[in-house]
Amino acid sequence: MMSDTNAALEAYLHHCQCEKRLDAKTVKAYRCDLEQFGRWLEYRHVTVALVGKGDLSSYLGYLNAHFAPSSAKRKVASLRAFYSYCEAEGLVPTNPFHGFKVCIREPKRLPRTIPLADLNGIFRELYSSEPNAVASSPEGSASDHAKGGYRPFCLARDRAIVEVLLATGLRVSELCGLDDRDFDQTAKTLLIFGKGARERVIQVENESTLDALTDYLAWRNAWQSVKPREAPGSSSPLFVNRFNQRLAEQSVRALIAKHANRAAASTHITPHMFRHTFATLLLEEDVDIRYIQRLLGHSSIKTTEIYTHVTNAKLRTILKDHNPRNAIV
Rank of each mutant, 00 (worst) to 15 (best):
H268G: 08
I122G: 02
P69S: 12
Y62I: 07
V46A: 07
S129D: 03
K73E: 13
S71W: 04
L126W: 01
W40Y: 15
L13W: 06
V27K: 02
G52K: 13
Q245C: 05
G121H: 03
A248I: 00
R112I: 14
K20Y: 04
A142P: 04
V240A: 00
A8R: 14
A197P: 00
S143Q: 14
L22I: 04
Q17G: 01
L13V: 09
K53R: 15
S136M: 06
L79E: 11
K302H: 05
K108E: 15
L282Q: 10
C86N: 05
T308W: 08
Q224H: 15
V46P: 00
L56E: 04
V162A: 12
H322M: 08
P69C: 03
R229K: 15
D286R: 08
A212E: 02
Y62T: 07
P115I: 03
R220V: 06
Y85N: 07
I301C: 03
Q36L: 11
E42H: 10
K320R: 14
T280Y: 02
F82C: 15
A117H: 04
T311L: 13
A72P: 00
I192R: 08
T308M: 06
A263K: 01
R157M: 08
R262K: 15
L60Q: 12
K227N: 11
S141L: 01
R242L: 09
R181H: 09
P111Y: 04
K147Q: 14
S208W: 03
S128N: 13
D180K: 02
L217C: 14
T303G: 03
A156P: 04
T317R: 12
A65R: 15
L295Y: 02
V27M: 07
N312K: 15
T308S: 15
L22A: 07
